[in-house]
Design a protein around this nucleic acid. Structure first.
Lengths: 205, 205
DNA sequence: GTCTATATCGGGATAGAC
DNA sequence: GTCTATCCCGATATAGAC
């Protein structure tokens, strides 16, 4: 009986392995040999499918990035009440992070090597800051929330979601005495806590 | 007339150069040759002062880390009112980030390679989570703030300060259309905005 | 202490058999 | 498509002259 991994074809095995190694080690830290080992093949075959390390990396990276930037465009531009949008965003974002906890550091690190390409990707994502910004202005005029720029709000939201993941080794070690289970619980609870924290911060009265 | 750099002795020049290159490229991405060039010496001399790349890196890293983790122990454990502590923390933290904007990604990335050592450093920093936690409990009992764990609060605070720096390439490109000056202004304004955001989020009524 | 020259090795990439 | 063997460059590290 074949294991699940053995049922994959070679290209899929390579992609799985590359994803794992690149995300864990970054481009510079990753080794083609390790990817080959992980995929149960040899180095030469990697080059047969993807001519270079760079090419293979690109495939992985943009795939990862699209997972990392959740499909929240529709959510943000829907006609849900603002506070529900915030809850939806935070919940969805943290769910993604729980599924792929190593993605953020990977993406942020690689971001320094090629910011342009990534910004281009985002611009093609269909998310329109202007539209959301207008929506926010209306809520401010209505008096539901305090005066805040969209850029501020979104940066705050992402920062609050993200940091527990990128900073996990420090926080878990220092504040949770290395208690992995306690930290997982902490992360899970933040799905609600972060949304309420944000709403508290911006709601009038 | 000597430039400022030429007045430094060799060891200082090496440390300056290494700091620059390591922080910019990370351990794996950094090249001893580039460090030597930057310092205006040759590779052999690097090894004369620091036997290996790893040794040189360690020196830089722990130095950088101590800058990155601002000396906020005293501030946090002082007898200032809570909201002033928060303002002080955010202001000080963001000032540090403005001075060393590339530190966070560097520290977070390298953190994955050696979490233990860094947590040890923190534990020797003199900051006592328990003490601050107790202080927070009192404020909750007094009714000044809503019920919140210290771990949540500090993670939120750091996350809010940090993200605009680690995510700068994306945010600046996507939300600010690459306008560097506008982004610097945005960062500067956050010194006040973030503190008030946090205070709003936790204060009762 | 500082240099030039070189040893050594690891890793990405290719050639070529099957 | 998949393998083994090998090329070749770049990077760390060392030897040794001055």
């Amino acid at each position: 009986m074949m294991s699940e991994k053995e049922q994959l074809n070679t290209e899929q095995k390579i992609l799985e392995a590359a994803k794992k190694v690149f995300i864990d080690k970054g481009f510079d830290g990753a080794r083609m040999q390790q990817i080959a080992d992980e995929a149960g093949i040899n180095k030469a075959l990697l080059h047969y499918y993807y001519r270079s390390k760079e090419k293979l990396f690109d495939t992985i990276f943009f795939d990862a990035f699209n997972q990392f930037m959740p499909k929240i465009g529709e959510l943000m531009m829907s006609d849900l009440p603002l506070f529900d949008k915030i809850r939806g965003f935070v919940g969805h974002y943290i769910d993604t992070l729980i599924a792929f906890p190593h993605l953020p550091v990977f993406v942020l690190y690689e971001l320094k090597r090629r910011p342009e390409k990534i910004v281009d990707q985002l611009k093609n994502s269909g998310i329109k800051p202007r539209v959301i910004s207008q929506f926010l202005k209306k809520e401010i005029e209505n008096g539901t929330i305090i005066n805040i720029e969209f850029s501020s709000l979104i940066v705050n939201m992402i920062g609050l979601c993200l940091f527990p993941y990128v900073g996990r080794p420090i926080i878990e070690g220092f504040l949770f005495d290395g208690d992995k289970e306690a930290y997982d619980l902490f992360l899970e609870k933040r799905k609600v806590l972060v949304a309420e924290f944000i709403i508290n911060a911006i709601k009038k009265n």
